[in-house]
Each structure stands twice: as C-alpha cells, then as structure tokens.
Design a protein around this nucleic acid. Structure first.
Lengths: 79, 79
DNA sequence: GCGCAGTATCCTTATTAAGGATATTGTGTC
DNA sequence: GACACAATATCCTTAATAAGGATACTGCGC
C-alpha cells in the first residue's frame, strides 16, 4: 500500500463522484436528500474528508448515476 | 437505504472475502502481512466489525485474489 | 489429551464520523 | 461592480469507530 498511490486513487475516486453528480445535474443538497443524510456528508466525501465504505459507495453511485463498475476497473489499473 | 438490505449486502461482502481468502489458500496472518496490518484487522473485516472503504477493499481483493468487479456487480443486483 | 496453527475477542487510546450551524464561494442579473 | 440567492465548504461538540497488541478460544492432526 504505497502512500502516494493510495492518495492518487482516492483523489480520482472523489473527483469522479463530483463529476458524476454534476453530470447528473444534481446539487449536494439533492443528493443528500436522496441518501437521507445532511449536505455536509456529500461535501465531505467529495472532498475526501469522509471515506465511503463499499456499500455506501454503491448507494452514492446509484444516486449520482455513476458507473461503479467502470470506476472500480479504472482504480484497479491505477493500483 | 433500507436497513435489512444494507445488512444483507454487508454480509455477502464479508462472506465473499472470507471465501476468497480460503480459496487462495491464505491464512489471516498471511493476508495481514501482505497488507501490513495486524491479524485482527483481517479478522474484523471478515466479521463485519471493521468496514472497508473502496480503496482498502481493492487492496484486500488483490491480495486474496477476489474478483472485485464481479462482486460489486452482484452487490448492485442485491441493492 | 497434547500441541500447535489459526481465528476471535478484549481493552485502552487515537482517529474519524455525525450533523446542525455558520461562513464562504459561485452565478446570474441589473 | 454590487446585489441576491443558491450552492458548497468549514467549524464545533459529541458519539462512534478504528488501531493493534495481548490474550483467549477453536479446531485439527497426532
């Protein structure tokens, strides 16, 4: 687990989630509402301040219309 | 995010990780060493006491030779 | 039943999450 | 450029979770 690579992957993950949300035309408030969480939750995971576990990630991906499989595949290549 | 479904998915995730490790012929100690973590870390995530974030999961999957993509795809179907 | 490998659990401290409130930033309009 | 308001980021306190070594349990071959 190299530190720099770990960081790179996390950055990629966060960026992709933000992009997907915007591409879906959603605000953090709208996503938060669907997830039944406060807006700060969305702000934090997009900023990398809050890590998402596997299941949480899938829930988020569904709401923001992110292709989880494709992203996971890409992250594997980085690793 | 229904509670029962959430739990089901987590159970599936944990089970699949344990099965994969065994199928790879690895002990928790061996996996822990490769991950540079204590054995209790492995015991805990297999028991669902410790949640893995997306990147950690990919690191684990690599070591235990688990097909992350296939598992993610299955978890999506459950959701 | 013994001995040992493997796994689970316990315990204390450190780190992270929660989430409402507030501050800051971004965007369109005039 | 400044105003108004939507959108996002940050702060703060408390609660929950993670860390990880030590120890207890379990299962298996002999």
């Amino acid at each position: 687990m190299e530190k720099s690579i770990y960081t790179t992957r996390y950055t990629t993950l966060c960026m992709r989630m933000r992009e997907a949300r915007r591409a879906a035309g959603l605000t953090q408030v709208q996503v938060a509402k669907q997830l039944e969480r406060p807006q700060s939750f969305v702000a934090k995971y997009e900023a990398g301040e809050r890590r998402l576990d596997v299941i949480e990630f899938l829930d988020v991906a569904k709401v923001i219309k992110l292709d989880a499989i494709e992203l996971i595949a890409n992250l594997q290549k980085i690793a």
